[in-house]
Design a protein around this nucleic acid. Structure first.
Lengths: 335, 335
DNA sequence: CTGAAAGCGCTTACAG
DNA sequence: CTGAAAGCGCTTACAG
């Protein structure tokens, strides 16, 4: 493959002149500049990113995306949506996208990635995080952005919806529709911030409307279809089953609908609101709190790239994105 | 961050000795080697991948994954499954994963990626491909693997299921269940190889069983839910509607089921077999040809990494993975 | 068994 | 306006 040396030789100039011309720097005559650029194109020259990175920032123009290991607790729709959003911004700004996840719970891979110089910044999409990794990144003054609120004790940039408020609004809309027996099913373990935030919003909404918080109306578990079925079965077994259900995830809601069917009921019998709107929720006609993951991803990438531009230590920035209730078939008023 | 110079100085040895020790090469005394390694750990030393890559292969240990742009015609479940599979192998072999897609139809980004030295090999997951890019890669002797059969005129390594055979088997199983009016809906435009292969298998199965091929039983279009509804509506409007339907994609099949419901029918009224099994198909109880995308991804990554190991030009390798019919609720015999 | 030197492909002051 | 030189962090023959 052609190197800058080849280009310089073919154009009959020095290597330095070639470099300057190709980077639009220095003061070359328009003539030589044009000749160099033309020669580079003719030779299909593309600067070696490693050499360039080594001599400039010691890093390569790549942003690392850290996600949960595929096949674990997160919706593929959300995953692809995020990758698409980050990629759109990255492409525009000429950054590459490196995808990775931690194999276990420790955070060693991320730090190795950083130290190896392969990435110039990181975007994290993780439900649960170990504080030490983020601390270490802070100490290195290494740019990163979370696509969620940071865990307790971490001071950093993040982009997220207000999950507490979203859950609050969802619950209130059900209360306004006349429901008083409203259940809540968490999208994952309660120590995931997203779970506890949504639970908190739900609880606050009940209490501010003088509805007692009842633990038997709460299920904590995974966010998959099976859990949804199990939750619905449990709720239906109560002496006073809930008339409205808040499902922490799409798959939960789908499981609930299926379970309803198995019990001879359908979507007209229970109000269901889910989080994380997706084509799935749409096709099932499930009312959903639309979390604009694509927007969150884009904003995160923008924040990160802006941050990469600063070499000095700068203040973290935070962006709160609005979530929105989308009413579909499963939003039925209390009878 | 610590460099090899820092390590050498702290350990009181030359830079060369440090490099040798850390790479397990050369002949150092066990004592100095141990001291160097220990020092490196203490300093959190991690070799700069750019410098290392520059001096060795001129490339970095990264495999590029080229997928369709997210949000376009492909199932997120499949996408995440593939990323998970490739990532598993890549992690094991100490490769990073770079994710990318072409913005338009030309293939310039891929070649730029290759020329910039950021990737050592490529895995392609694309329905449609331009021959020129692959030719250029061949000319550079650059390692790549397709997760699908190559387009006409491209000689390369690939891993895929036999879509013709899978469609053939699916169709035959319906014929054996007594169906003679069997429809086929393509998963995408017919010039996608996957579409034409499946269509071909379907057609061959009919003809080998003396069933006339009838164009009104064939719909060509996108693989989304809307197309599924449209196809079902069309089929139901025929004087003699099909009794069994082959849906080229999951979303198509779901659209068909929904449309059935809208027409007052359900899954017991029509046999439906879909391609690309997923948790979705499972939860809907749709019979599916299970395409083991995760396995295809892993095999592709293995093939690629093996190929990267050869500097000489070697013969391409091909792997055909078996697909398997999974019978669920929507497999009903003809009445 | 260990150190000094060259070089990977590039950029950036620094001379002329 | 252009060229010669140093250097980014590493590895690998090559001397000693």
């Amino acid at each position: 493959m052609a190197t800058i040396k080849d280009v310089a030789k073919a154009a009959g100039v020095s290597i330095a002149a070639a470099s300057l011309a190709l980077n639009g720097k220095g003061s070359l005559s328009e003539e030589t500049r044009a000749k160099i650029i033309e020669t580079a194109e003719r030779l299909n020259y593309k600067p070696n990113a490693l050499a360039k990175g080594l001599v400039t920032s010691n890093k390569i123009n790549t942003i690392g995306i850290i996600i949960p290991k595929p096949g674990t607790e997160f919706l593929p729709f959300v995953g692809m949506d995020i990758l698409g959003g980050i990629g759109e911004v990255a492409n525009e700004k000429k950054y590459n996208m490196l995808l990775d996840w931690e194999e276990g719970l420790g955070g060693t891979k991320v730090l190795d990635l950083v130290r190896s110089g392969i990435v110039r910044g990181l975007v994290f999409f993780l439900p649960l995080n170990d504080v030490t990794t983020f601390r270490a990144l802070n100490d290195l003054n290494f740019p990163y952005v979370l696509m969620s609120r940071p865990p307790e004790g971490v001071y950093c940039s993040w982009v997220d919806v207000d999950n507490v408020d979203a859950a609050y609004q969802a619950t209130v809309s059900l209360i306004k529709a006349g429901h008083t027996r409203i259940s809540f099913s968490s999208p994952g373990p309660i120590d995931f911030l997203v779970s506890s935030d949504r639970h908190s919003g739900y609880r606050q909404a009940l209490l501010s409307h003088n509805i007692a918080y009842d633990e038997s109306y709460v299920s904590i578990g995974n966010g998959d279809i099976q859990s949804g079925k199990a939750a619905m079965t449990h709720f239906l077994s109560l002496k006073e089953p809930p008339t409205a259900l808040i499902a922490g995830s799409n798959l939960l809601a789908i499981g609930m609908l299926e379970s309803l069917k198995e019990h001879g009921l359908d979507h007209r019998d229970k109000a269901i609101i889910t989080f994380d709107d997706s084509p799935l929720a749409e096709s099932y006609g499930i009312s959903a709190i639309h979390i604009p993951t694509n927007t969150i991803a884009k904003e995160s990438a923008r924040l990160l790239i802006k941050r990469i531009g600063h070499t000095r230590r700068v203040e973290p920035e935070n962006i709160v994105i609005d979530a929105q209730l989308i009413v579909r078939n499963t939003f039925v008023p209390a009878r």
